[in-house]
Amino acid sequence: MKPLDGIKVVDFSRVLAGPMATQIMADQGAEVIKVERPGTGDESRSFEPAFEGGQSAYFCAFNRGKKSVAIDLRSEEGREIALDLAAAADVIVENFLPGGMEKLGLGYEAVSARNPGVVYISNTGFGQTGPYKDRKGYDTVFQALSGVIDLTGHPDGPPAKVGVPFADMTSGLWIVIAAMTGLLGRATSGRGCHVDLAMMDVQVSLLSLPAMWWFAQGRKPTRTGTEHLGRVPSAAFECRDNEWIFISASDQHWPAICDVLALDAPEWMEKNAARVERREEVMSMLRAAILPHARAELADTLRAAGVPAGEVNTVPEILGDPHTRFRGMVAGFDDPDRGETQCLATPGRFSGYDPIEFLAPPRLGADTDAVLRSLGVGDARLSELRDKGVVA
């Protein structure tokens, strides 16, 4: 048994945020039915990087453990099938532009008329209302508009995007939060709901600390590289052999830092407020003291002294890290073409439930027949729909 056993999710979303969210739900036991276009499917099926043989690793990263149903939503018969699917769902996730699902006859009003308990999540760029609601956007556009890119990078350099699809992935997490909140609300009220979840709103909500600098002091936050606006030291420092270490410390850690680095620091440096005020003086002293050290040895020594410190790992380093491996964060699934294929696990371990079994992402339309049969569609009708190109 898994936490979401018995929950049915119909996923009309594409590319990243929605598929990431529904994959998390699939990992936890939900039945996720991914509705795709016949012939091409989710456009991320063609995205790089790709495994040998051509299958998109991008698609595999966000679509494992789902069922794929290929339905032509441009046809009336296809829309009727999709509405039948939606009528049996606990959760619906879609990321069409506002009004897009309504034009297909699959909007919240149409679905909830047949399925009043449905939790229907519309994940759009700018929401269902507002002056920007009809704008299109991608992850980096939302990073830019929200101020995240302006806050990222070094003070003397240009703005930079976050190194992962930050807006997409944080929005994906909020889709899961919305789905679970809606389901919990349904359990107490007996009613479903429509969730208007804008990626732009998610990004603005993440500005909580920079916003407080503005709200409290009228101070515009600026790029600080790896440094913290309100704490010194909290930054990446270069070590010997061009390796880097991150040290984040408060006043209680300062004496241990001075001891490990053999610093003859003046008394005024004992207080963080003074270190922040004279940031460059403190940072210059620390950079010079840290540079001769080997990263691994220094990190171990600082941690042994109780100082929060960590190596600045590359992706291969952290994927091979013994703690990462021990925690099972590098997992795998059995792919019908390649065999054992590595993937990243979903974090969170729930006591009293079966462990997660990671399953391969579906081939396009692999489950069309089985899912339609579960709706009562007979073999003759299936053949007719397939001949018409309504399903594939």
Rank of each mutant, 00 (worst) to 15 (best):
C239V: 00
A88W: 00
D264R: 03
I121F: 10
A82N: 01
G310P: 05
R325V: 11
I177R: 13
V111Q: 08
A144C: 15
D354N: 10
Q23P: 02
T314N: 04
S46F: 03
L359S: 08
G365S: 05
A50Q: 10
W254A: 06
S383V: 09
M25Y: 04
N313H: 05
G53L: 08
P131D: 06
V232Q: 07
L291D: 14
R363A: 13
E48F: 07
R338G: 10
P210L: 08
V312C: 12
R278E: 12
G99K: 01
M329G: 05
L85K: 10
T140N: 04
T226V: 04
S75I: 03
G18Y: 02
N313G: 01
A331V: 01
V118A: 14
V371Y: 04
Y353A: 13
A113G: 10
D264W: 05
M169V: 15
A309D: 00
S122M: 08
R114N: 07
A273E: 14
D387N: 11
E109W: 03
P336C: 07
T22W: 00
S68C: 09
V232H: 08
D5V: 01
S171C: 14
E281Y: 00
W254L: 07
F333C: 10
V315S: 11
S75Y: 00
G125T: 00
L207D: 09
T224G: 13
E109F: 04
V15L: 15
E109K: 15
M329R: 05
R79H: 06
R74Q: 12
E277K: 14
A198H: 00
A87G: 15
G39Q: 06
D354C: 11
A216G: 13
W213E: 15
G172A: 13
R37W: 00
D337L: 11
L207I: 03
G365K: 02
A211Q: 14
T170H: 14
G163K: 09
G389Q: 09
L229Q: 08
P98L: 08
I247T: 03
D337Y: 01
A87Q: 06
A211L: 15
G105A: 09
I257P: 04
S208P: 09
P131N: 06
G157K: 13
A288I: 09
A113N: 06
L173D: 04
E77Y: 01
L183D: 12
P347Q: 09
V195A: 14
A289L: 06
A70Q: 02
S146E: 08
Q28P: 01
D42C: 14
V162C: 15
L229A: 14
P165R: 02
T222S: 15
E102H: 01
D90M: 00
K271L: 14
R79A: 06
F62S: 15
L97F: 02
R219Y: 06
L145Y: 14
G225A: 12
A345R: 11
G65D: 08
E311A: 10
P3N: 08
P155M: 12
E76Y: 01
M285D: 07
A262W: 03
E277P: 01
F47V: 03
D90Q: 03
C193R: 11
A160F: 04
A82R: 00
S208K: 12
S250E: 13
P336A: 02
N95F: 02
L97C: 07
E52D: 13
P308H: 00
L97N: 03
F350S: 11
S56C: 10
L286P: 02
T124Q: 09
L183M: 15
D72K: 03
P131E: 12
A304H: 02
L173M: 15
P362S: 07
